[in-house]
Amino acid sequence: MDRPAHELAAVGLTLGYPGRRVVEGLDVTIPPGRVTAIVGANACGKSTLLRGLARLLRPAAGSVHLDGRPIHTLRGKELARLLGVLPQDPTAPDGITVLDLVRRGRSPHQSWWRQWSAEDERAVTGALAATGLLDDARRGIDELSGGQRQRAWIAMALAQDTGVLLLDEPTNHLDLAHQIEILDLVVDLNRAQGRTVVLVLHDLNHAARYAHHVIAMLDGRVVAAGPPGEVITRQLVEDVFGLACVVVDDPVSGGPHVVPYGRHHSVLVAH
């Protein structure tokens, strides 16, 4: 079942923390119904931008619009029914089970006198099934592997049942197999219901393979935005990461694949 694709866009967005501006005057459009990856070097403002898009940060100037409405005018729960966000490195309460965690994702749909409904049950079961955690529902979060734990948090955001899903470095601290597992799951979520997904990713090659749209940031500015094939070039990697590289065709997906030189390994290819 496809949901109406939601338009998320930032206009003149300025974000920061007390005494420090991280992002200044950004205009960003997130293509609806697609997977967007935000990439850039450490401290370039990519997580800050995501937090701003999710209203976890109050903009110092400018605004974020969801379907044309400024998100700061929406009520907390109203926004949480439209837009889900998984912050970076969340920590679960001690002793919580997968099921308890995922159930809490339903809170934007609940009220004091309506704390559980058949719809809640469906959404929770669906989120557990989509993340492959049905059999682990009764296990404690602290018993799980890093990859399972991350899936449990994603399941919580899924239970929220929103058309837009923002994930801040969802592959952080995971080994390669689990990184791919999470990214494949992201594609499933996007394809199955036409969800708009925005990811902050460290790995350019993951962004190249899994995103339809890549936003590259440098020092709080957007330096390039577009399909990975256009954005991820040798020049961009040099500009954004200060890293010399070659960009080859990914032998598996056919998209761009970044191979850095480093100082010790430029044997086969001349600069």
Binding site: R51, A54, L56, G76, A80, L86, P87, P93, S107, M156
Partner: peptide, 16 residues
């Protein structure tokens, strides 16, 4: 129950 999740996840779920 929201605050137990930590500030950012609670905010993400729409808790004030």
């Amino acid at each position: 129950r929201g605050l137990q999740l930590g500030d950012a996840p609670a905010q993400a779920l729409g808790y004030p």
